[in-house]
């Protein structure tokens, strides 16, 4: 890996990390969702500066080329992110359901309470 490639990889990884930290600082990205991104940024930085590590990973996963190993790691990260979102969406869906039911029940009980004095 040439120095030029290392510098580009390091700049890319550092930009990603700084962007993530800045988004968390501005409260535009919640800490809950930042950890996977920070892991990806740190991973990109470490691999960018240490090419032998990427070669070791390539050997470990049985890939033919280092570029294949990079794609594998990237796809794994995207899958992990999608899974985290799916878990969160499932939880949010239950919360929305409970909220809708709560509001609907309150509305219904309010109208029942308004009718009851007239019925007595």
């Amino acid at each position: 890996m040439s120095t030029h490639q290392r510098v580009v990889a390091a700049i890319f990884a550092l930009t990603l990390l700084v962007t993530i930290i800045e988004l968390v600082r501005r409260r535009k990205l919640k800490e809950e969702y930042s950890w996977l991104w920070i892991m990806a940024g740190v991973g990109a930085l470490v691999i960018g500066l240490n090419y032998s590590l990427l070669e070791t990973i390539t050997r470990l996963i049985g890939a033919g080329f280092t570029s294949s190993a990079l794609f594998f790691l990237g796809i794994f990260f995207v899958l992990a992110l999608c899974l985290q979102f799916s878990v969160k969406i499932s939880k949010l869906e239950t919360q929305v359901k409970n909220l809708v039911q709560h509001i609907s029940l309150l509305e219904a009980e309010k109208s029942v309470a308004q009718q009851e004095p007239h019925n007595k």
Partner: peptide
Amino acid sequence: AFVISHPFNM
């Protein structure tokens, strides 16, 4: 009937 209305289809 007692009517409970959802604000949208659930």
